[in-house]
Structure formats: C-alpha cells, structure tokens
Design a protein around this nucleic acid. Structure first.
Lengths: 209, 209
DNA sequence: ACAGATACATACCGGTTGGTATGTAATTCC
DNA sequence: GGAATTACATACCAACCGGTATGTATCTGT
C-alpha cells in the first residue's frame, strides 16, 4: 500500500474546495479552511494547484460541471423524448438534490454572480458550462419541434436561454427565502412555461407526476 | 457656508459604498477603496457607520431599495392598469437602466447570492426588498384578475414569485454572458410568460412597443 | 540500487483586512 | 461666549490573506 496517492489527495482538495466555495463564495473561501478540512498543508495544495484561481477553475469544470452533467444534461440529451425528459427533470429536480443546494444556492449561479464581472477566466469557464446547459435545452426544444411536440413558431433558442435563466433565478430567490417550498413552486411555474410551448397543451399535472 | 455637512458626507459614503459593493461584492468590497473614492478617512466612516455590515445594510435599504422602488415598484403600483404597466416595465427595462447594470448584475441579486446563506441580517434585509417586489407583482396580477385581464384560474402568488425569480435570473445569466442583448431577449420571453396569463392573448408585439 | 522526479511538510513573508484609540476642529446649545 | 456635543482626521493594531522558499520523504524509471 502506498502512502502517497496524488490523484486521491487532488480529489480531496477539489471536493473540499468545492464545499468551501459553495458555502463562502470563491473570494471569501479560505485556503486555510480547506487545508484544515483535508488535513493537508500548503505544500500539498500548491503542488497540485499553482494558485487559488486555478483551484477555483478546476472546481468548476471537474466538480460543478460534472454534477450538472449527470443531474440535468445527460437525462435530457440521452432521451428519445427530450421535451418530456426536460419537463420531468424540471418537475423532479427539487427531490433529486440535497436541500442545502437550495439553502446554499446553485454552485454555478453563485460563482456567476460573484465572479463573472471581475475575472475573465472565471467568466469564460462558467460561461462554457452555462452554454452547455443552454445548448442542451435548445437541442431538446429543437428536436421537440422536429417531432411536432413543440409548436413550430417557437423561437427555441430564446426559449432555451429563458429556461436556463429562470431556472437559476428560481434557485437564487429560493436561496434568499431559505425555502425549498418556494423553489418547488417556482419550478412548477417554469414547468408551466415549457408546457405552454407544446403543440397540444398538457393536461393538468400531466408530466408533473 | 458650513465646512461640515454630516448628511452630505453620509450620502457620499453610501453612494461610494454602493458602487464598490456593486463592483466587488460585499465581502470583497474594501473600506480603503471607499475612503479613497470619497476622500474621507476612517474616522469619518466609522463615525457614521459602526461596522462594515451596518454600512452594507444601509446601502440595501437606502440605495438599492429606493432605486428599485422608483424604477419598478412605483410604476406598477401606481398604475390603474397594473398588468399593462408590469408588461411595459418588463419590455422597456433594458432601456431604462445603464448598461453596466447588466454587466455588473442586479445589485439586489448579487447580494442575495453572496450573503443570504452566510449572514442572517443581510438575508432578512434583502428578503424584505424582494418581498416588496413580489407583493408588487402579486398585487398587479390580483388586480388584473379582478379587472378580468388575467385568467381567473391563475395562481397569482406563484406566478408573481416566478416573475421575480425569472427576472433576476435573466439579469444574472446576461451578466455572465456580458450581453445586454441576451438580457433583452430573455426579458422578452418573460414578457411572453406574463402574456400567457392574460384572458385574451395579446397580439404579437402589442405591449412591446 | 541508485538517481531523479514526484509528493508532500514546515516556516516564513509582505500586504491587506476591518476595527479602535486618541486627538482636534467645527458646530450647537444655553 | 463658553461648554458640550458632533464631525471628522491620524496613527496604530492584531488577524488573516494568498503565496513562496526550502527541506524531506516517498516513489519511479533504469
């Protein structure tokens, strides 16, 4: 058995940094806290990541983007009925996510609001994840249109952008209210919006359960 | 002429703090920067505000809430046709606001994402402003229902919460994309959502221009 | 087995942070 | 007009920040 496992310690740092950043934000995230949490030292951390910024960027595309990928992007992308899959995800997301994701907010949204305006690298990195999200919804709506599920006159690009925006907005407001119920109610309205894009209006509570 | 004008210097501090917080966020906002910007010293600042937190809270309810009040709340509340007024505000907000409000984000939303989870006083203060916003939209939809403009089966409370959430979401995403155009497109979709609550669907581009 | 590289630990540093104690000039009140 | 209060300015502080230089143990390639 080895005493030094570089990949494992790297992951430990990434996960701990993710939690610290999720709780405090990036700028307020303390390297010292991460070290205390992991039991490591500065030597270890700065061996794996040259700067705090690099650590933050790594958290974005190795932790945050992966979670979104498997929680939201994949189910929608891999489905044969993408619009239904999207509605399903919107309707059930509040159950699939730990409640502190409402209390602490969406990690992606938190970082976007904090960093986009003051750090170009963060802005681009976050923007690429957001872009994937947007493209995923866009693809779902487009395919839905081809399948005749979505009304043909819908501007699917604009609608996709709005879906993602409103989604993040719902988490953000629910975070301030510290209310998972508000989040659920809000997402239900978003569900209704997507439903209003359908060619044949959904019956009440159709895809909700 | 007086050389010392306490109210005036207090306002100068508030305004400068507002800008600094808007640009950097609250935690990263530097007291030193505010002093440099105003030309004052620590003695002055800490004479008017006991702590940085108190300054931040004062900025919320003396600067941020006032701006929202006159930009959004009042026009909707004072109108005899509140739903039309709401649609008007949604459709034209991107023109009435300096473009750096898209680049830097909504001051209220920025602070909510940053502070709600880590400071209870901030959360409550921000929540009260958000609550006014919500109640304003709620009142508009309710009155619209009474006037027969909004369909009777609409859950106006849930819809109001969603409108505010999506609104903030639109600014937030546009901020990351650094794109006023995205903001405009996004708000147009929100406009469409509110339009979908109308008893008689609006003609294309009706209230848009 | 030995050399070089990797993976850490320890100790230290300059700069910045919010906050305070003290001093002083201007204003207000009686 | 003098005393008290208000409105500032100056100087200072401990704590914390991210980052680095250096040392050492472990691992790997040959």
């Amino acid at each position: 058995m080895q005493t030094k496992q570089p990949d494992l310690t790297r992951d430990k740092i990434l996960h701990s940094a993710f939690c610290e950043i999720h709780r405090q934000g990036f700028q307020a995230a303390s390297i010292a806290n991460i070290l205390q949490d992991t039991g490591l030292t500065k030597g270890a951390l700065y061996h794996h990541f040259p700067t705090k910024q690099a650590l933050g960027l790594a958290v974005i595309d190795e932790v945050i983007s992966q979670r979104l990928e498997q929680l939201v992007f994949q189910p929608v992308r891999d489905s044969e009925h993408p619009v239904e899959a999207l509605l399903e995800v919107i309707a059930t997301i509040h159950k699939k996510v730990p409640s502190d994701f409402v209390m602490l907010g969406c990690p992606l949204n938190n970082l976007m609001q904090e960093m986009s305006a003051i750090d170009e690298l963060f802005q681009k990195q976050l923007g690429s994840v957001l872009g994937i999200w947007q493209k995923t919804v866009e693809g779902a709506l487009k395919r839905g249109q081809q399948q005749g599920v979505i009304r043909p006159e819908v501007d699917y690009k604009a609608a996709a952008l709005f879906v993602v925006s409103a989604w993040e907005g719902c988490i953000g407001v629910a975070k301030n209210m510290q209310s998972p119920r508000a989040f659920e109610s809000c997402m239900q309205q978003l569900h209704g919006y997507v439903g209003s894009l359908l060619a044949q209006p959904a019956r009440k509570g159709r895809a909700v359960k």
